[in-house]
Design a protein around this nucleic acid. Sequence first.
DNA 1: TCGCTGAACCGTAACGGTTCAGACACCCAG
DNA 2: CTGGGTGTCTGAACCGTTACGGTTCAGCGA
Lengths: 367, 367
Amino acid sequence: MAGASNVRRPATLASLAAELGVSRTTVSNAYNRPDQLSAPLRARVLEAARRLGYPGPDPVARSLRTRKAGAVGLMLTEALSYAFRDPAATGFLEGLALACEQAGQGLLLVPVSPEQVDVTAVHRASVDGFVVYSVREDDPHFLAVLERPVPTVVCDQPMGVEGVDRVGVDDRAGMLALARHLTTLGHRRVGVLCMRLAAGRNDGPASAERQAGATYPVQRDRLAGIRDGLAEVGVDWSDVPVHERFEHSVTAGQEGAAELLAAHPDLTAVLCTSDILALGVLRHAADRDLAVPEQLTITGFDGVPEAERAGLTTVRQPVLEKGRVAGELLLERGDRNRPRRVTLPTELVVGSTSGKPRVDQRFFSGW
Amino acid sequence: MAGASNVRRPATLASLAAELGVSRTTVSNAYNRPDQLSAPLRARVLEAARRLGYPGPDPVARSLRTRKAGAVGLMLTEALSYAFRDPAATGFLEGLALACEQAGQGLLLVPVSPEQVDVTAVHRASVDGFVVYSVREDDPHFLAVLERPVPTVVCDQPMGVEGVDRVGVDDRAGMLALARHLTTLGHRRVGVLCMRLAAGRNDGPASAERQAGATYPVQRDRLAGIRDGLAEVGVDWSDVPVHERFEHSVTAGQEGAAELLAAHPDLTAVLCTSDILALGVLRHAADRDLAVPEQLTITGFDGVPEAERAGLTTVRQPVLEKGRVAGELLLERGDRNRPRRVTLPTELVVGSTSGKPRVDQRFFSGW
DNA sequence: TCGCTGAACCGTAACGGTTCAGACACCCAG
DNA sequence: CTGGGTGTCTGAACCGTTACGGTTCAGCGA
């Protein structure tokens, strides 16, 4: 096949050196240390390179020799493409990319197939370090990352892993502030719609056991924040319905809302552990012509741009900043004596979706 | 400093082999070709690896030998972080990530500093190929990519580069359909707000020379589509005001709209070459209490989710699909006889922001 | 002329693997 | 007993580069 001639190997540093009658070191220096050889010789080397089609030192060989890959790996459990769907993840990525860019490092998106045990992608990633974004602590990919002899920074989850830095926010405190906002308004009968709590699909009520066994500490903490806030006004947590969704999407929020409100029509507020879910609840309310917040208060968590535009009451967390800090933590030279933990502040954003609870018991008299 | 002992080199394949008294080949086979050695020996190797903390074959060394980096590089001219801001770019990334994921390839975001001549990042990228997303044809980073002896796929721009595959849409035809929609409604006095046409900042009217010298063919084609459509009803292109914005953001669209409408208060429609800009024009209209489409018709291009929610009349292009095709083009094995060109279809989306032109000459009688 | 210096260049040894052509035993059919 | 597989394991070459510790040599002051 004629194509064979197309894959002719490009010239190497060695062949170029031979052609010129100089040592390989000299050619290498022509690229990496111009001050180590005379200008005329350097010009000759570069000219010969152009003539022979030598594309410059091979990046992989260079990486092997210098022991630097020049890139950081990003690992998330969800399908790689999911990262571009979730606005919170996108914000994080933007911040991380910013930090990498500034340090001249590449950002390698590691292709992990969700719910798959194949961790070879983690083994094959040529990186100087990993950033792990919000995964379960028993995730096999994460365990594979830990085995790699490179520094690792975790964002959000898992928490408290030995030897790795972590950046996150105080989810519990953030949710506590939000819960207090609602109890101050007078809400007592509230429901919760949360994201995936642990491995295994569970779309529906999250039992006390399910909550206790949560392997996603972020979700656990957010629930705990709500619990704390309600406890302050004497509402018992066991009376609070918590529904869980496996998928994280507006549609999932919509369905969750329908389910939650059908089972508990007396609720005056639905608290979501993410804005995306809350947007779904908003949509459900719109579908049913429920006035927000007059008939139902709806809140989220994250503070994504879309939620802001919708006027959602939520807890804003600095997602971009989280990404940047994660990158800096990883790339920053410094004595890595002990693992560092960075907790960024959250901010309660009171929008137009929270108000006083309605006085009538149910949405429709017919119920 | 005590830290020095922390950076102890991890065990290598060779050291593991020596420890076990077997050849390096055998250790290598234990990882890569389990069928090449007996099960007991393989178990011994793996056990010793765990005991000695051997993390498995080094990815970089492996890449050097196998001549496969296991990743594709993505190059965009804008700051890396910009890619996560622009919804069209995000959609493209999602599709590309999807394709990579499926092929088990990593996706390396190459850190190019915008408007900077330093192309070392391109030289240092350990990748098996490049995807170039919508850059100027004279972009130094792009030229550096071309010098690398790896396959390259271009999305959108530049067009017609020898030896590289390309995926894009028929921007001109898409815009033509949109222009016809407007002329059919009766519009004759239209203005255009477009994105960056060439290197060098130009915020304001784009002269005929500026348009002719555009180094962003996509923008050029979209303008040409509008011109074609207007020509069909006898509107001379030289009478059509075209304003350009360097930044691509809602704010830029807002400012551009203010400028354009101040200079040409008789316009009945503003066509934007992107949804983001159009959203800015919409915002401007809202700020001035202009009724859309009663007083002003506004259109975009791209078909991003946010535009859809806003009911924007626009031309939808399959951004996710574009990303996926780009990835497939690059990763697909096959005889690369001649460069391939894929053109994806566009679709006119008539929303609620386009209507018949108003009858009164100007927005306010006072003008 | 000698000793010394600094600039310019070079040879060798890694870097950490993969691969391929054997070597060696062992077993089974003929 | 022999010839030919088959299953295991090994030796050595190779991937393309950079780090390290030289060597060479022109120039210069005494």
